[in-house]
Design a protein around this nucleic acid. Structure first.
Lengths: 256, 256
DNA sequence: CGATCGTTTGAGTTTGATCAAATGTGGTGG
DNA sequence: CCACCACATTTGATCAAACTCAAACGATCG
């Protein structure tokens, strides 16, 4: 029987790294606030504001993004179902970027106090949160490499590989593909291309038989080919649970 | 009389955020291993390896970078004097990128155990380390925006602004400029342009009277102009010490 | 059934890359 | 001290990737 908890995907994701005890999972579930629905393109947290909790995406699709004064926009990260923004958000007085939904989404909030409580009581949860932020940073580095060095085709392919694998890790992908409720112009802001060029790049990926993207979903026709084209190496996602040091006592920063 | 400690720049930088007590500074100084000199283009820590301590750049210039299988390279961050790689490096079993010097540098290492000890004993140091990683991440986001959205001219200008302000914060800049011991081809790998185009961009920046770059130094002729061109807003560097929540008890993750 | 938003396509332009070669510079060893 | 070498900078000429502008076409939704 599947875990009925609203934040079960978060738990599932965290378990990619740490085995969590029953009481830890329960505590996490109980800490989660009610799920609130958002429409597409609503802001969860705006640049300049202060976070008072950690948002967990239950379903849907959200992103971090930054805008230049003249309107140019760069999306700097995706939040997929099961993702949470990192546990340190409320150390910063003001956000330096905005978090918004891209598609209709449900979001639960772990209040500030709950995080404090959880991390005080459950070192393994603390470690899992750490892992989460480390993976997020590794993803950010990959995006920088992609946008800096990869061609348009490779760039889009790499993004698709990443999204596909990340969704797989929470059970939201099939061998045929996954959801990707993002418009081409949002894709453009993600991979730093123009909308028109994204359109042509998608056409090319379709033509060579690797993937096709309908309005809201990604069909993977040849993952091996896609992966080769993108030079995608999933190890940076640390999904095996073996990318990290498991020894509990290894680091004081982990011990609340 | 100036602080003679080898890692005084790190302390100076951390004090941009947290006032450190004398015993905290002393403990930090005593924890630092001997300073080891490196030539330019030596690796401090290679992709795939595991870190066993935190490197602190005492003098010189280093960077994080990643290479694609076919040789294309992207520099994903600079380490300036006083910078340390983040305190969590040794949670990861393997580095997902390489850290190398760009110029001859001296590097001291805070051994793993010292970090554990320091963060257990001195919450304020722990907070300062946190702040360090948060700023590093904010810088990474800015680089993504730069490379994704800014033109060549803006991109180089923004990088120069950032380096200049960061060096200022540890007292290594004058009103006239600062050191920048980086070749044009390394600059190219940083801002994701070709070497030739970096050269032309520098020429243009010189022509319009904003900055000029000799082999190893940056002369700032018009910082206000440079800043306007780059749309540079230094607040993401959180150097005022007011970008963060200072309340000591606010977050369990901070209490070792 | 308009209206709005997203996708697709074409044509022309721009930015920045590539290739090639000349010029400058710093260091090293004879 | 000079000759030489390796490397870095600069410049020119050409090319290609990606952008812009513009318009048509297609969905989706009150």
């Amino acid at each position: 029987m599947p875990d009925p908890s609203l934040i079960r995907l978060l738990i599932r994701k965290l378990e990619n790294f740490a085995e969590l005890a029953e009481d830890e999972k329960r505590a996490l579930q109980e800490a989660a606030g009610p799920v609130r629905p958002y429409a597409a393109h609503e802001d969860l947290l705006r640049e300049g504001e202060q976070a008072n909790g950690v948002a967990v995406v239950v379903s849907g699709f959200a992103c971090r993004h930054k805008m230049l004064p003249d309107g140019r926009r760069q999306i700097i990260g995706y939040f997929l179902p099961g993702d949470m923004c990192d546990a340190r958000v409320f150390i910063l007085k003001k956000m330096d970027h905005t978090i918004s939904t891209l598609a209709p989404s449900s979001v639960s909030v772990l209040p500030r106090e709950a995080i404090i409580e959880l991390t005080s009581k459950y070192p393994r949860l603390t470690r899992a949160f750490w892992w989460n932020t480390l993976v997020e940073e590794a993803i950010g580095r990959q995006w920088l490499v992609s946008i800096g060095q990869r061609t348009a085709l490779e760039r889009v392919a790499h993004l698709f590989c990443e999204v596909y694998v990340r969704l797989q890790s929470v059970g939201l992908a099939t061998p045929e593909g996954c959801e990707l409720p993002v418009t081409q112009s949002e894709l453009a802001d993600t991979v730093a291309l123009s909308t028109v060029h994204v359109n042509r790049t998608l056409k090319e990926l379709r033509r060579v038989g690797l993937v096709s993207m309908s309005s809201k979903a990604l069909s993977i026709h040849d993952f091996a080919g896609l992966r080769a084209l993108a030079m995608f190496d999933p190890s940076y996602l640390h999904l095996e649970g073996d990318g990290l040091i498991r020894d509990r006592a290894s680091h004081a920063l982990l011990k609340p």
